[in-house]
C-alpha cells in the first residue's frame, strides 16, 4: 500500500471566488484513518485555512457529512483505505448553499425541522407528581428507528427531489415528524397534518429511496414517508366522506 493518498478538496470562499475549485493535498494513508482524519491532518499541518465542520468523530453528532467521491458520507466513518490508491474527491453536501469550502448553510433544514414540531406535544401536561408517561416495548418499537436520526442531512444530499424542489420538507424532517406521530406519548399528529399533507410535505416525494440507502444510522425516511402517504390518504377520504367529522 502506498503511504500517502491524494485528496481533491473543494475550496470556495464566496466573497472572493467566482466559483468553487479543487485543491489537491497529500495525506498519510493510514489503515485506521478516516477521511475526517485526513482533513484534520491537512488543516493542522498543511493549510490552516481549510474549513469544515466536525465534532464527535464517532457518528453521533452528524456534523461531518460531505460528498466523498460523489456520495454523501459521514467523513468520520469513511475509511481512506477503501478509496486507495485515490485520489479521493471531497466536496460539500450537494443541494445546499456553501458558506465556505466544505461548510454548508443549513438554515433551510433547521427551519423545516422546527416547523413539524419535532418534540412531544401534549394537550395538557401531567403534573410532575403524576409520574412518568409509561410506554410498552412495542409502543417504543413503533418509533425507535426514526429516533436514531442525527440530523446529518446526508439524506438531503442524496434526494434528487430536494435538489429540484427547494420547498420540499425532505426526508429527515418527514421521518422525524413520523417519529413523534408514532410515539404513544405524543398528541400532536393533528397539528402536524396540515404541514405534512401539503404538496411540499410528503407529496413531492417520488419514492426514489436514496435517503434510506445513505442513512448512516439505518433510519428509513422513505418508508416513513410512504407510511404517512397512506395515513394522509385515509384522512383525506375520511374528510371527504365525513366533512362534519373533527380533524
Amino acid at each position: 500500500m502506498a503511504d500517502t493518498i491524494a485528496l481533491e478538496v473543494t475550496r470556495y470562499c464566496p466573497e472572493r471566488d467566482a466559483e468553487p475549485s479543487f485543491q489537491t493535498f497529500e495525506a498519510p494513508l493510514r489503515k485506521d484513518w478516516v477521511v475526517l482524519d485526513a482533513l484534520n491532518y491537512i488543516k493542522d499541518k498543511v493549510d490552516g485555512s481549510l474549513s469544515f465542520r466536525w465534532s464527535c468523530r464517532m457518528g453521533i453528532c452528524g456534523s461531518c457529512g460531505m460528498m466523498v467521491n460523489g456520495e454523501p458520507k459521514l467523513t468520520c466513518a469513511t475509511f481512506l483505505s477503501n478509496y486507495a490508491p485515490g485520489p479521493i474527491r471531497v466536496q460539500p453536501l450537494q443541494y445546499f448553499p456553501v458558506v465556505r469550502d466544505l461548510v454548508i448553510e443549513m438554515t433551510d433544514f433547521l427551519n423545516k425541522l422546527k416547523a413539524v414540531k419535532p418534540w412531544i406535544v401534549r394537550r395538557e401536561e401531567k403534573p410532575l407528581s403524576a409520574g412518568e408517561y409509561l410506554q410498552t416495548p412495542e409502543q417504543m418499537d413503533a418509533y425507535k428507528q426514526y429516533s436514531m436520526c442525527i440530523n446529518c442531512m446526508l439524506c438531503y444530499a442524496a434526494c434528487p427531489v430536494y435538489g429540484l424542489e427547494k420547498h420540499f420538507k425532505g426526508p429527515a424532517v418527514l421521518a422525524l415528524a413520523q417519529r413523534y406521530n408514532k410515539d404513544s406519548r405524543d398528541q400532536g399528529a393533528g397539528e402536524r397534518t396540515d404541514l405534512l399533507s401539503q404538496e411540499d410535505g410528503i407529496w413531492d416525494c417520488t419514492f426514489v429511496g436514496e435517503c434510506t440507502k445513505v442513512c448512516p444510522k439505518n433510519v428509513d425516511p422513505a418508508g416513513a414517508i410512504q407510511q404517512y402517504k397512506l395515513t394522509a390518504t385515509i384522512e383525506w377520504f375520511q374528510s371527504l366522506l365525513m366533512p362534519w367529522g373533527a380533524k
Partner: peptide
C-alpha cells in the same frame, strides 16, 4: 388553514 392537496386521490389510484 393551508390548502390541502388533492394528491391523496391520485396517489390512491
Amino acid at each position: 388553514m393551508p390548502k390541502r392537496s388533492n394528491e391523496p386521490l391520485l396517489w390512491s389510484l
